[in-house]
């Protein structure tokens, strides 16, 4: 008996020590959170339960905003557009970035140059980038449709046809995958080389090596990318605004570019419905959180941490 309780005390002591250590290490973020983030987040949640126009004191309406949202056509439309760009866009962009990272990780002459080139589009400011895209995607004299015509395909009216505006954005997104590629490159450096040597000796094919060594080794990075791209895709804003501007309206042709964050922004800063906009923000929060939780839960099956035992 005495021995057991002694053990329990020992465990508790160890746990407390861990807790102190853990809190010390995470304290920078915790302190920052308490000072800078907690208040705005709580305020936003409170606003979502009020009618608030940014100037007069918020008026409590309970879940009124949430109820109204579910009857708002544009809420659904913007959610649809956002889901579209997320579901169709995220995985191809990621796969593409990984492929590029693998190519750029191979030992070839001029590796540094290649790596820099692939990163360049990420660096080009949006003003220049959007001009180029308007140009490339132009249905009449754009390079893309000219290319398609050369192989006998009638290219669509990318920026005007509501069915094609979102695919245009996704297409454009491939050029912006430079940062993901860079992070994958960094992750690839951590794959122990001896694994490949062993596999080489066993005569495993490159394809097999990728799935048995590379992919599991960089799976923590894949998890990170998946979660972060999900979050940023659900908050898709800038590119949509730039494209919509070309068609001189907030939501683009037939609101096909009315993304969730854009509609939220419009509600908040153009219509001064900050309460409504905050409710939108919290619904998005729940949706993204649910998606993330599902990914985290399933990640146990495909993410391998070298630090795990």
């Amino acid at each position: 008996m005495a021995k057991v309780s002694g053990n329990a005390v020992g465990i508790r002591k160890r746990e407390r020590k861990l807790l102190v250590k853990g809190l010390l290490f995470t304290s920078p973020w915790i302190i920052g959170f308490l000072i800078f983030q907690l208040y705005p987040i709580l305020a936003s949640f409170y606003y979502s339960l009020t009618e608030y126009n940014l100037f007069k004191p918020p008026e409590w309406v309970g879940f009124g905003n949430y109820k109204d949202l579910f009857q708002d056509d544009k809420f659904y439309k913007s959610m649809y557009n956002t889901l579209y760009i997320t579901i169709v866009g995220v995985v191809p962009h990621m796969a593409y970035a990984l492929l590029m990272a693998l190519l750029l990780n191979a030992k070839v002459k001029g590796q540094s140059i290649y790596r820099t080139i692939y990163f360049l589009p990420t660096l080009v400011p949006a003003v220049a980038g959007s001009l180029l895209w308007m140009w490339l995607l132009n249905s009449q004299y754009g390079l893309i449709n000219m290319g398609l015509e050369a192989i006998g395909i009638m290219g669509p009216n990318w920026l005007v046809d509501p069915d094609w505006t979102k695919p245009s954005l996704i297409l454009m997104g491939f050029w912006g995958t430079g940062t993901i590629t860079v992070m994958y490159l960094a992750a690839l450096q951590d794959v122990p080389k001896m694994f490949y040597e062993a596999a080489e000796i066993d005569g495993a094919s490159k394809w097999r090596q990728f799935w048995t060594i590379t992919f599991p080794s960089i799976s923590p990075m894949t998890l990170f990318q998946l979660i972060m791209m999900l979050i940023s895709s659900f908050q898709y804003f800038t590119e949509g605004m730039v494209f919509a501007e070309a068609s001189q309206s907030v939501g683009g042709p037939e609101n096909s570019l009315l993304f969730y964050s854009i509609y939220l922004y419009q509600q908040a800063f153009s219509f001064l419905n900050m309460g409504y906009a905050s409710a939108m923000a919290w619904i998005l929060f729940v949706v993204v959180m649910l998606f993330s939780l599902v990914i985290f839960k399933t990640s146990a099956r495909w993410v391998y941490y070298g630090g795990d035992k």
Binding site: L38, L42, Y46, F55, K56, P58
Partner: peptide, 14 residues
């Protein structure tokens, strides 16, 4: 926690 704290923080923004 978020719920209870939000009630505290509600006023005072204006």
């Amino acid at each position: 926690t978020i719920l209870s704290l939000s009630l505290l923080a509600g006023c005072g923004s204006n």
